[in-house]
Design a protein around this nucleic acid. Structure first.
Lengths: 183, 183
DNA sequence: CACGAAGCGGATGTGGAACTCCGCTTCCGG
DNA sequence: CCGGAAGCGGAGTTCCACATCCGCTTCGTG
């Protein structure tokens, strides 16, 4: 691969990630190409179609969540570690319009679901188990719950972004409260 | 207005409501026209554009929520009345893909926000106040909370409809638990 | 019943976004 | 330093949904 081509591919990925965060999946490939400072054809040369680009960005988002999990795993206190992780994922959903649609493709594509489970599961499951053992998390709580609770926060953030950009935090807190074991 | 024209208008509204429930705002006017058994032009003769049709359907959805509120108001027990209302609104969001986008236009249009507040507020506020007085609902809970909690359930239902159509109930229950006063 | 206005349906126009084609430019091994 | 392969940009094509136009049909009044 020629060096300039590799450089352009990076530019497309970076611009794509930025536009995805800001505008969600609505962003057009024309916009991405323009933002990256390349022509549309260059985008299509690297990614056969729109979905292929999204696939590539999916892995980047996944890496981001993995990093959050690894950071939380470094916290000694089990309840705090879990809470920190859950909150940071919620924050990612709320502030990055690309996370929800990209990750939620897992519901539609077995390949995505597997990759998600394989890469994220081993890191997150211990957080859940430890928090349950410490009594700060209700039994029966699953990774899927974590994904969907975060998606819920994301949807609130989407609806209120224009008028009350910080409101999602209220609901994030409410949901975190809801993860405690029933009294 | 000619009788056949009035009849066709009704057919469009009914078909529009059905498609909105099933497919959400994605439904095309062509589909609506076909489902109603009329031509596209007939739809446009009654509603100058797509938004005008959605406006008309908005009022229908609103009536539906009002009916739910009136039904709940008939329940003597204040906590049960509020819970019933909240759950039934959540159910409406989860099973009718049209409710979220139609109602959430209130966030963008002052007119909708006013109409919503004017028609729904006086019915729902008493439910909230009574439940709070009875100690089953936390202080600071607002109508907006009710709308957004329901929207959250709707978003979960959207994401899981294909694979686990009843999963939204789990989160509905979780959120209702979250409306109790903190221990 | 007859006639004109009101209403009708679908062919057509318009616009925006995904995707392709092609003539020009840039890279890089010999 | 040069030839050609690899890469490039953007004009053009296709597709789909919204919206309009127009010749034909139906209603309902006199």
């Amino acid at each position: 691969m020629r060096s300039d081509a590799a450089f352009n591919r990076q530019r497309v990925l970076i611009a794509g990630a930025r536009l995805l965060s800001e505008q969600g999946v609505e962003a057009t490939l024309n916009d991405v190409a323009h933002a990256a400072g390349v022509g549309v054809a260059t985008v299509y040369r690297n990614f056969p179609n729109r979905d292929a680009l999204l696939d590539a960005l999916f892995q980047a988002k996944l890496d981001q969540l993995i990093e959050l999990a690894d950071h939380a795993a470094g916290i000694g206190d089990a309840p705090a570690a879990f809470d920190t992780y859950l909150y940071s994922v919620m924050e990612a959903h709320a502030t990055d319009r690309g996370v929800v649609p990209v990750l939620m493709r897992a519901n539609q594509s077995a390949r995505f679901a597997e990759e998600l489970a394989a890469q994220l599961g081993p890191r997150v499951q211990p957080l859940i188990v430890s928090a349950q053992a410490a009594g700060s998390l209700r039994d029966g709580f699953t990774i899927q719950d974590l994904c969907l609770l975060s998606a819920m926060v994301g949807s609130v953030a989407d609806l209120t972004r224009d008028t009350q950009p910080a409101l999602w935090e209220r609901y994030a807190q409410m949901l975190i409260d809801g993860t405690r074991p029933p009294a």
